[in-house]
């Protein structure tokens, strides 16, 4: 136990020695603040339309109930705006009715929405309806985004551990350890403990900035466990297969693609092909994420358990390679 504690202390000391560690410590704070700045435009992405002077004032007032409106000086500038990139729809008034100006490359969904509202506004009927609010202040999008940030931050710490393993390799630390009483499992456990402490700290800071004190402890715990599991696994793969930092970048590119991007793409693939993704550890982390946040049907605890087992099996399968590359023969 003492050996593990001293290894953990060494990792902390090393990471605090770097001048730029201050940035690392601020990382969760910066990323959470950025998300908070951009979140409102994510949640309330109201449709913007462009009008010219032909639209009478009473129609402008009606349109303002539905869209964000920018008034342009003449039809030419409206046409230019519609022609610039993004889905910019124009509305003009001619022959006693509102007309939609578009290029045809806009999203069909947005065209349909604007068209149906124009159909309604052309009826000259004032909108009147009863409304009741359930009082929920956070949207699903913000939940997804907050969880995504949490997984990123927690996973990041494990990922960065991979690079410290490579540094240990480069600094010939393993040769020194080979003649010390430290065994492979001491080294691995110390790394895992460092990652867990650091990522718990970061995750809490991020959670407090993003949501405040009012967060669901259970889902926080689930996300924390699955995120750090993925990060630690990525870290080990990078540490094992890279001999130097440049190779580590190359290995991480491929591992991130397989462990993070492919599971995300699996969401877009038809049900019958999902089985192909079962062997990817990250697929199960993504599944945990979708069950707990997106309310997709499935057993949360069972999926988390499968994720744990698959990660563990992969790490066990990597042990012979670890023994060889770390040059610490004893487990």
């Amino acid at each position: 136990m003492n050996k593990i504690i001293s290894l953990v202390k060494k990792d902390w000391k090393n990471s605090l020695n770097d001048k730029m560690t201050i940035f690392v410590l601020f990382f969760p704070i910066i990323i959470s603040i950025v998300v908070r700045i951009f979140l409102p435009s994510f949640e309330n992405a109201s449709i913007k339309i462009f009008i010219d002077t032909s639209v009478p004032n009473n129609k402008v007032v009606m349109l303002e109930n539905y869209f964000e409106i920018e008034k342009l000086e003449n039809y030419n500038s409206l046409e230019n705006k519609v022609n610039s990139y993004g889905d910019n729809l124009g509305v003009i008034f001619s022959e006693n009715s509102l007309k939609l100006v578009l290029t045809g490359s806009e999203s069909p969904h947005i065209i349909n929405v604007v068209k149906s509202v124009l159909n309604y506004v052309n009826q000259d009927k004032s909108l009147n309806y009863e409304i009741e609010s359930l009082g929920i202040r956070r949207s699903v999008i913000s939940d997804v985004l907050n969880t995504g940030v949490l997984i990123l931050i927690v996973g990041m710490v494990g990922f960065s551990m991979g690079f410290t393993i490579v540094e240990d390799k480069e600094s010939k630390m393993f040769s020194a350890m080979g003649v010390s009483p430290i065994i492979l499992s001491d080294y691995l456990i110390s790394k895992i403990i460092t990652v867990l402490i650091q990522s718990a700290l970061f995750a809490l800071i991020a959670q407090l900035i993003l949501i405040g004190l009012n967060f669901n402890l259970f889902s926080f715990f689930i996300i924390f466990i699955s995120g750090s599991m993925m990060g630690i696994f990525l870290g080990f793969v990078i540490g094992i297969f890279s001999d130097n930092q440049n190779a580590a970048i190359a290995v991480s590119k491929v591992t991130i693609f397989i462990c993070c991007m492919l599971p995300m793409i699996s969401f877009l693939v038809p049900e019958q092909f999902q089985k192909l993704f079962y062997v990817i550890p990250g697929y199960w982390v993504m599944k945990v994420f979708s069950i707990s946040i997106l309310n997709i049907e499935g057993n949360l605890i069972l999926t988390l358990f499968i994720a744990l087992i698959i990660h563990l099996l992969f790490i066990i399968a990597l042990t012979p390679k670890m023994k060889k590359t770390f040059k610490i023969g004893r487990l």
Binding site: E43, N44, S46, I47, N65, Y66, F67, E68, V113, V117, L127, Y129, E130, I131, E132, S133, L134, G135, I136, R137, R138, S139, S142
Partner: peptide, 16 residues
Amino acid sequence: FRIIAQGYEDEKTLNI
């Protein structure tokens, strides 16, 4: 008709 909003939607979206 009556709309039961979640609470986070903006007015323009509900009006549409």
